[in-house]
Amino acid sequence: MVSQKITVTNKSGLHLRPAGELSKIAATCKSNITLVKGEKSVNPKSVLILMSGGIKCGDEIVVECDGENEEQDLKTIIDAISSGLGE
């Protein structure tokens, strides 16, 4: 398993549109992905579950990828979040 910390910077946090964008990207990944915020873990492949994590602008989260292609997937997710998810 690989993991990396990142701070969410898009101003509305993981609201409907950015969450939709992220889950679309996550769905293309082969490994199991988890976003960890404090004690909460959510699966970003589901936009509903992802939004229920209530991740806001300025929150520090950990992205974990586990399984086939994990290195590549971690980079994909980190790049997506740091790019601001289309916002």
Binding site: L16, R17, A19, G20, S23, N43, K45, S46, V47, L48
Partner: peptide
Amino acid sequence: SDIFTAHLELVKDISLYG
């Protein structure tokens, strides 16, 4: 309308489907 772009993700959502 942009609003519906997000609806598209919702309707196909894996946890809703699951």
